Amino acid sequence: MGRSTLVRLAHSDHPIASPLSDARVDDLLRRAVGGRASVLDLGCGDGTWLLRALRQHPGLTAVGVDTSDVGFEQTLAQAADAGVADRLTLVQGDAREYAGDAPFDAVLSVGAAYAFGGLAPTLDAARGHLAADGLLLLGDCFWPAPPTQAVLDGLGGASADEYLDLPGTVDLVTRHGWATVHGHVSTQEEWDDYEWAWTGAPARWAVENPDHPEAREVLAEVEKHRDGWLHGYRGGLGFVTLLLHPGRAAVAGG
């Protein structure tokens, strides 16, 4: 089974591909795009964040870029049903190379830093698309404590330098000239809801379709992921979402 198919199943019960509750997503979008005219999502997945933003904020236009177009068709159909399709553009391509119209009033990049090679290059890429008074909504993982070997193994052999701790993450953002104007650290409940949905939806599909040629493979992948979570990184991996303003460097410079 292709990874994209498994991810599509995994996110069917939790369409936001991050450990964030519905209420928190709505709040973050309100803070990031409320009253603004345009938003760009770098590493948009299937475009769920943008569809949600468009439904909530009339007049907003949105562009999403992702290397995969899995889920684009469904999201565009939902956008048409909601009457917002004329305000949504989804682009299949490398977000690092996107050179569309700029600047945008807001940029989103939640859980996509890996696509840029880390947090620092993600910040640099976002700045190139953002208006001077715009806002960046950035989400990434961090270590709530030095990771144990079990945590690293549970994440498929991650390295201890893959993420920083929370203070280090915010310090890095600050060193790159951004002002943090809001932040949210995902709770254990949000993480658990996300992981139970990620593993539960594909497992249900597999047991309800036992004769499907990929059912056994899906169930095996789900069990592998769940074991890595429950026996490894549960409680050992954090997620922070930061709302950032790019003007700190100008302020510091007087």
Rank of each mutant, 00 (worst) to 15 (best):
G200Q: 09
D124C: 00
L40W: 09
L54F: 11
L152R: 11
L90I: 10
R127A: 12
L135H: 11
S186W: 04
G156K: 05
S38N: 02
Y194Q: 02
L28K: 10
T180Q: 14
P58V: 11
S21L: 13
G183W: 09
D193L: 10
G139Y: 02
L138S: 05
L20M: 13
W205E: 01
T75D: 04
Q92H: 00
H245T: 03
G71C: 04
P103E: 07
D86K: 13
G111N: 08
S18V: 13
D227L: 08
D227P: 00
Y114N: 09
W196S: 05
A85D: 15
T148E: 09
A150L: 11
D27W: 14
V251Q: 07
A95Q: 05
G100A: 10
A158T: 08
T180D: 03
D66G: 01
A158Q: 10
W229K: 00
V222S: 04
Y233R: 08
T148F: 06
A112D: 00
A113Q: 06
T75K: 06
A150P: 04
V33C: 03
P103Q: 09
Y98H: 15
A179L: 15
G45A: 11
G64E: 01
S68T: 07
C44A: 12
T187I: 07
T48V: 15
V218F: 06
L230D: 12
N209H: 15
A160T: 08
P246E: 09
L138E: 09
L88V: 07
D193Q: 12
A252F: 00
D133M: 03
A99F: 00
P167I: 13
L29R: 07
L28E: 05
G93I: 10
G47V: 07
A17M: 04
L6W: 10
G64A: 04
G139S: 07
G93N: 11
L123Y: 02
D227C: 10
A23I: 12
Q78S: 13
D66F: 02
H129V: 06
A95D: 00
D227K: 12
A249S: 13
V170R: 15
G43H: 05
V107H: 05
G247S: 14
F239H: 08
L20S: 13
R31I: 08
H184D: 08
E195C: 07
W229H: 10
E190V: 08
L20Q: 13
G100I: 13
R30P: 01
E208Y: 03
L244W: 03
E190P: 04
R216V: 12
A206Q: 04
A10H: 02
L136G: 01
D27S: 14
V207L: 03
R24T: 15
H11D: 01
G35N: 06
S186K: 05
V173I: 15
G59S: 09
L28I: 09
A249Y: 09
A206E: 07
A206C: 06
G83P: 08
A203T: 12
D66W: 01
D161F: 01
